[in-house]
């Protein structure tokens, strides 16, 4: 049962970290242009190939 004293705070902390990350993502506009993000992956980088 003493394990709980560690595990519960850890679980809460991790959940809280996830929540903070989500709120940060909303604030910094990560969800503003979902279709754009899906399309940007198709854009080739302009830098010349250095092979």
């Amino acid at each position: 049962m003493t394990g709980l004293a560690f595990l519960i705070p850890i679980a809460l902390l991790m959940g809280f970290a996830g929540l903070v990350a989500f709120l940060w993502a909303i604030r910094s506009g990560q969800y503003d242009d979902m279709d754009g993000a899906a399309n940007r992956i198709l854009i080739e980088d302009e830098e010349d190939e250095t092979r």
């Binding site: 242009d33 979902m34 279709d35 754009g36 198709l42 854009i43 302009e46």
Partner: peptide, 28 residues
Amino acid sequence: RCAGCIAKIERELPKQDGIRAARVNFSA
């Protein structure tokens, strides 16, 4: 309409005089 348009606008616009940067929001 497509990824090509995003790339074209974001790359070619800043090459013109007086324009520093361009950022596309595709959804809107």
